[in-house]
Design a protein around this nucleic acid. Sequence first.
RNA 1: GGCCCCAUCGUCUAGAGGCCUAGGACACCACCCUCUCAAGGUGGAGACACGGGUUCGAAUCCCGUUGGGGCUGCCA
Length: 473
Amino acid sequence: MSPSHPERVRFAPSPTGFFHVGSARTILYNWLLARQSNGAMLLRIDDTDTERNREEWVDGIYRAIRWLGLDWDEGPVRQSTRIDHYQAIAFDLFERGLAYWCDCTRETLDARKPPGTPPGYDGFCRDRKLSQGPGRALRFRVREGEIVVNDLIRSQVIFPAGAVEDFVILKSSLAPLYVLANVIDDIDFSITTVLRAEEHLPTTPKAVLLHEALGGPLPRFGHLPVLVNEQRRKLSKRRDRVAVEDYRQLGYLPEPMINYLALLGWNPGDDREFFTLDELIHAFSLERVGHSPAYFDEQRLLHFNKTYIASLSAQEFARIARPFVDPMMTGSTDGDERLAQILPEVQTRIGTLSELPAMIGFLFHFSPDYDELADRLRAGDDHYLKAVADVLAVTDPFDSPTIETSLRTAAEELGTSLRKLQAPVRIAITGAPIGPPLFHSMAILGRDECLRRIQALLEALHQRTPAPEPPLP
RNA sequence: GGCCCCAUCGUCUAGAGGCCUAGGACACCACCCUCUCAAGGUGGAGACACGGGUUCGAAUCCCGUUGGGGCUGCCA
């Protein structure tokens, strides 16, 4: 299913914010196309808008790409270093009569048009033969006739004559606009396929026009469906959690992120749902990219993350867990040993790495609010706790199976179930009603510490002043 | 408003005229397993937006309606 000819694709983000999950999907698909065709992907930084760009965002782009496990073959090309070149070509377009200078401002344009008229340029300066000068922008003279875009994903899209207005290619500051710089670079770097988000579809006819004017073969265009939020609106930096960096910090891993993103808009045609990057290279095809907007479902991402974590070897899991558990282990003497013992027990219990501290922190530091813990206990639990303390004192060896046997026997003698007996013990030992396997945790902590924690809860229970009787009316 | 895109379970989707009593996955519910919670196993509920065509036959093709989205900037 892979293309027979090497594709030259490009990924061209603008550094105006955090690297977006939508961008991550776009670069993935481009990268896949390049890899499966033995082609190349160019990384281009579209930083022509000096007002909005920040250098830290550029670094963020590099970081995110590497974190995802992707790379690029050429570049990065900074458009900001090629301004002169774009200007020269724009001036040439003017010389050839394909562009003209315009001094209309938003205000003069609006003033000219009857109220309620839809936005858009009216071609006022088309034949005024203005020369270059302060306050004058260069507009492209859009030709007559419809413009056809053959989209790889949507097939033929026709823009009727008159649907495209004369658009600005050089600001009055002489800074080039994105359509111009894009087309010039796509030509200069022999891009064969432009694969980008659907929001660019309406500007594609402008690119086609520019290509016509500048010559050279037209690249193939493909427009990916947009990613939307719960309200079905395009994912927005303001409203939604979209930064790849955020997901990294939350303990999501690159492999499941890639896996999930690949499936957001594309599917293999069968029921397969787990893919490595390498498998994606072979399986991916533009033909199987969907047409409709896709909801970025964090729950499903979580499922992929969780499944991936569970599939890791103990060594791999320990390695990636490290940065998330290190902070809570400071000051703990045999922390490494305890960590090594508990990690296999929690590997199938977490969705993201950031859940780790809350789940196993009790093994390293324990200073609960005993009043709160006491609140969680039920009537009679103090008897259970005492009985368990007695049993634990003579449990030998103090390992998980033996502890279990001891408590099982104790439960029988108390006429209760292990389920009920372990509940208050779990509260005493871990501080929470749910968590990793209790007996294993107890073995890790050791007899003394377990008894100390049970005693502490018992004392807290006894020291509580009984709730005053409600006054009788 | 104009131009453009899109339309199958809540979500991601399979489906390219009969294989559809519409399949899978996430989430949800129940049961099993079980020291809690997970994991795992079994089962369940849940969709072709609507209306016209075309056809022996339509989720699949055409038209319209409705709905959603994108763009409409001297941003990208």
